[in-house]
Write a protein that binds this DNA or RNA. Structure first.
Lengths: 141, 141
DNA sequence: TATATACCCGACTAAAATAGTCAAGTTTTA
DNA sequence: TAAAACTTGACTATTTTAGTCGGGTATATA
């Protein structure tokens, strides 16, 4: 069970943005250099972040991206959601078709995965982008 | 982010075992039929469960597998561990080699994944195989 | 004591998912 | 007007996952 790189990079890139975009937009080029992520890959990621209004773009020379909200208003959960990475431990709909009547062993494990989903999602619902930055400050001292 | 089938099948099979193995060993053939999992795949899974002393095997005619402990003493966490499926959201050791000094953006996200790991693992640490069975009884009524 | 039943184990493969690139744009502003 | 920067869809190599194959070994019972 592993998170994919897109989700990870998205969080990294947004943390970077939160740190550097207070005045001017930050170009993907800069993020790419600092975080060591390919620009082309960042483009894919930011496209989705933009569609979900987590960032907005500024075109033209000296353009780039800016956070669309305050870091304390950006839940980690919504970043994942933007990347179609809602934490779903299993897609059991296929199984339900056959034989899944609520009494089978299959179903009791389904129940477990549902609880897990809720557990994980609540973790991300309660985490904000700003939480990460605060941690960093404490640590840097 | 998805759990793999081995972990899921392992939990299903063990729940099946808990239900049917109180007197006699249960053959993989029976589990295979009831849970609709290939015997060959079950063999792989039970090999690991056995190595980790979660089940023991009874060879020969009418043989099969039996739980090695009471269901209330089997943590879901140890089932996952047996299958090398410790919940690890990312393998960041590669990244640490370059540039990860505790101050970079990379590191603050690492911190987030660590917290997530702890969060998920504690969920499985506190869940027992017996918890699933209790649920099933309630539901069947 | 033969044999059917059942476990044991390493190697293999097809299919799916993931990570990342390419090409060919459009928009904006200095 | 040209450079900087975003936009988009299609593509591909690599890795992971799921599941199979083949050829065993052990043992209980008829």
């Amino acid at each position: 069970m592993k998170l994919n790189t897109k989700s990870r990079y998205a969080v990294m890139a947004l943390a970077d943005l939160a740190k550097f975009s207070s005045q001017n937009p930050v170009s993907l080029r800069d993020i790419s250099l600092r975080q060591n992520i390919s620009i082309l890959y960042l483009e894919q990621i930011f496209l989705k972040l933009k569609k979900n209004f987590i960032v907005r773009s500024v075109r033209g020379v000296n353009g780039g991206y800016v956070l669309n909200k305050n870091p304390q208003d950006i839940k980690i959960a919504e970043i994942f959601l933007a990347l179609d990475e809602k934490v779903k431990t299993m897609a059991c709909k296929k199984d339900i078709k056959k034989s899944c009547t609520g009494k089978s062993v299959k179903c009791i494990t389904h129940n477990l995965w549902d609880e897990l989903d809720i557990h994980i999602n609540s973790f991300f619902e309660n985490k904000k982008l700003s939480d990460l930055l605060i941690k960093q400050q404490n640590r840097a001292q």
